[in-house]
Design a protein around this nucleic acid. Structure first.
Lengths: 214, 214, 214, 214
DNA sequence: TATGAATGAGAATTCATTCAT
DNA sequence: TATGAATGAATTCTCATTCAT
């Protein structure tokens, strides 16, 4: 179908166009996965000519990689803001869980994007030096918090920070990412305000119930 | 003189053909998602004429739904086998975690299929009376185990069986389903024998650490 | 899609099956034309197995030819019933117009079937000895009526019966066969009771206005 | 420096392509009907890539609608050229009949296209604002001619212009549109030069024989 | 006489991508 | 930096017809 010119034809600059494309691509990939995404819709969403996408980003796959990189940058940036090194250990864990939970709620596209990338066996991640080396600062943070907690005889010893990081992520990720099937199967609204409060509470109880000695 | 059927001719077996199609479709959808799956590859995989797929299953979406239904049937069937009602509560939880973990390892296609279905907002599940009503028997089981554990003063009270079910699933699901990106990011083999033992151990510790009172 | 067995599985005989097939085929061809007709729908409509159609009628084209033949048989049979040779000429013309008009109204499938056959340049008619030789008895009838009318000094002389036959058919055929586009263009209901009366009246006036001398 | 468009400047490719597609589509739809038409043949006929058809016209149905619109535009345009308001009434009617006759002869595709559209119950016409509102100017013309003829005491009174318009169209349309079956049945060449002259003569006699008082 | 299973050859439509400017 | 026009290669789906019993 012939494309219409942008209705608001404000002047455009290279950076702006690229950002618009990445924004539209993120939405499209998050909504439809890599295979289901349509370059046409991305062009429409970004209000640019389709050809321009290829000008800036070589191909659909490349574009997906770029989106993935920006997405990892996004979460890593936020994780860095989360300064837990001076917070009391129990409270630090609390905040960590809440942060993860809230981040996923605020960025549902992160979940589906990661699912897509895993479906493709991390192909794009592996070929992205940028994203591959963006380790989460939270591993260090968790290690620090655990260490302090153990020293204060608050926490059990011998907990692997990576395992804990994964578990904390898992508890939110699965609940939110699978909410459509889960709520269908359980015939129960999992995303209402009350349900959300309960889930965060359960996850916090679970993690702290495990960590905290008495 | 009765003619023999061609020696290389596939015997005409409707049930067999349908099963072959479903098997091939499961593999294809699990590998590529709904959009990425190719009907041609499914036909090849099932060694049937492409047209036959449409003869038995109306469309790609319908086929996906059928696959999904059979997949849910599969896990629900196994869950039913898992008789925990007479097992001592702590051991029961242990077995439940191990079962979930092992099932996902044995059926990696279950994970990607569910991810696909969630990407599509459970569209197929919602239109499948069959699958929609196949509630997991494990909710009942968990409720029973928790109750017994509480009565024996082994477990903490007030734990919601659905939350616990979701959490147990989450811990395995996220680890296995995201193993490609996680192992890339952590540069660590998450699927080696040792890593698997450690993960199962961590998950069990986590859940029991939370549940068991002292 | 797999076919269901007939819900009412009464015993069937060859003649009955063939008639059912022809009935269903007529409806299908009339509704969708030759290309648009579906053998599957015909089988469904006749409540027989698709294979049976090929058993009795070689192919889609053959089936169409058979339908056409039966259709011509139908109208020729009715035309024969119309005994106008002893009717007063003016009244005979009146009856002839009304008969044509009413036949087309009662058999709308006749119109679309003929349109289809003309689209295909009368290919099936030309290869059907049966239909090709089924001349309309009305030509003779009209010739007779005209002759009598002229002798009685009622009608003008020199009218070609074939031209008149075609014109009488044309006036009904076009109105009824194109009623969908005509009523859309004129935004006027052409098929209501009042409109029908008016059309028949107009056609009769037109033909008699031409034929009758004063 | 403003460039003057050269008078012989080639039309934009886009326009040309669209016209070529519409031309080829008209021929194809006229020859085979909507269902029988093949997008491949249209692409070949227009010497464009098949994909381009979908680029400009959404679908086969849409293309058919566009063809229909252009076809109606064509006849309405010619009808407008036919200036009969200052012509003597009898001569005006003569010209009108001849115009209709000659237009159908020159545009046989118009007949089959309309038949197709009626087979589809004017579905495309009804969804085309363009075509739906292109009323024939001939209705007004006929009303005017009739009125003048009545005033001059040449014509009978009380003739509905719409009925007359339909009848004039019908006489040519049926003869030409059904010429294949008719000439097969009558075993008589209906499209030879002599036969055409006779038909036009008959139709004119018929209409004027009805209209003109003595 | 009848039928469920199966298919090869298309058919419409889609899609990422490139051409020409 | 930007774009409208164009396309080859799929991709889903269809259809008349045949196979095997």
């Amino acid at each position: 179908m012939a494309q219409n010119p942008r209705p608001d034809a404000r002047p455009r600059d290279a950076e702006r166009s690229q950002k618009d494309i990445l924004d539209a691509a993120l939405a499209e990939f998050a909504d439809h996965g890599l295979s289901g995404a349509r370059m046409d819709r991305i062009a429409d969403g970004a209000a640019v000519n389709k050809r321009l996408i290829y000008y800036y980003f070589e191909s659909k796959e490349s574009l997906f990689r770029a989106v993935l990189e920006r997405t990892y940058e996004g979460i890593r940036g936020e994780e860095k803001q989360l300064n837990l090194t001076k917070i009391e250990p129990i409270e630090a864990i609390r905040r960590l869980i809440a942060f993860t939970w809230n981040y996923y709620i605020a960025h549902p596209e992160f979940l589906t994007l990661l699912n897509s990338e895993n479906l493709h066996r991390a192909r794009h991640l592996k070929t992205s030096n940028k994203a591959r080396t963006m380790n989460s600062p939270l591993i260090e943070t968790i290690a620090d918090v655990l260490e302090r907690g153990v020293k204060l005889q608050l926490f059990r010893a011998g907990v692997d920070p990576v395992q804990l990081y994964i578990s904390i992520a898992a508890l939110s990720y699965f609940y939110l990412g699978n909410s459509h099937t889960l709520s269908t199967i359980f015939d129960r609204d999992l995303l209402g305000a009350k349900a959300k409060v309960e889930r965060l509470s359960h996850m916090t109880d679970l993690i702290l119930g495990y960590l905290v000695r008495d």
